[in-house]
Amino acid sequence: MKTTAISVSHLVKEYHGKNEIPLRALDDISFDVQQGQIFGLLGPNGAGKSTAIKILTTLIPPTSGTVTVNGCNVVSQPLEVRKNICVVLQENAVDSFITVRQNFLTFGRFHGLTKMEIEMRVEHVVEMFGLREVLNQQAMELSGGMKRRLQVAKTFFVNTPIIFLDEATTGMDIHNKRATVAAIKEEARKGRTIVLTTHMLEEAEELCNAITILNHGKIIAGGTTGEVKKMGLQIFYLRLKFVEISKQLEEALKHLHPMKMEISNSAITMTVREHSAALQALSLSQTHGSLTDFEISTASLEDVFLQLIDGKKASVQP
């Protein structure tokens, strides 16, 4: 039987400015996260993702609604909630005056680890995130990417059942991004619940078992990653290769009203909404062009996301 790690019910958060109408950052949202799940909270800037994370991590109280983390209420049992979580926030939050090793030491102490446990875990995460060379360097001397590595590495330093990662891989190079993704998967396999926000939808698609998409403080889609992607079953991605692309073909394809269309010297990539439009595009390519190769696939999470968030602004990009 699955255990609910996080439960959010009718959550509302309003910000009250001076002499202003309250800004509703979260508008009656509800979702559950199961234990061991990698849950993606997605949405454009200002959608309410960070506000939701702040409430879930007890940084700010909700205006109304109920939120429990590992069975503990964020309003009435904030300390119990904090005992169950580990958080990577958007900022490169490191203790800049002290060394990388000392950052781990203090973090471990805050989480009640013994000196021996800290030493053992430092060895492990330092290897995992390639921090050995900078271990005795002051954190303020590290590059932005390195600071991010240190911050994320701390998450894998403790065994809290729930991890929150707010744009965790931002600023990391590809090698460390891969290491972080692998580490997140491994932790979930061990039974830790991971909540992440990211604007890298490929990453979310690769990592998440479940997704909730927010826009203007409301949930516009939610479910398993497969279920959310199914919303895009009527979206098709085409890659067409030609010897030469004629103006006539270009115009004919534009009449299919693609969500997205890019033309290079000998290839056209386009995203269309209907099954029939995909077939028509192929047919037109054969009739009006010298089609040499083609590829057709269903939509990626990114396409679904764009359709949900920005559907009305679908554009053609010649």
Binding site: T58, L59, I85, V87, L89, A93, F110
Partner: peptide, 18 residues
């Protein structure tokens, strides 16, 4: 103020302490 600028201040507030 320094802790707030680096962001570590907010991380502290998520640590398991009152």
């Amino acid at each position: 103020f320094h802790d707030r600028e680096t962001g570590i201040f907010y991380e502290f507030l998520t640590y398991p302490m009152t």
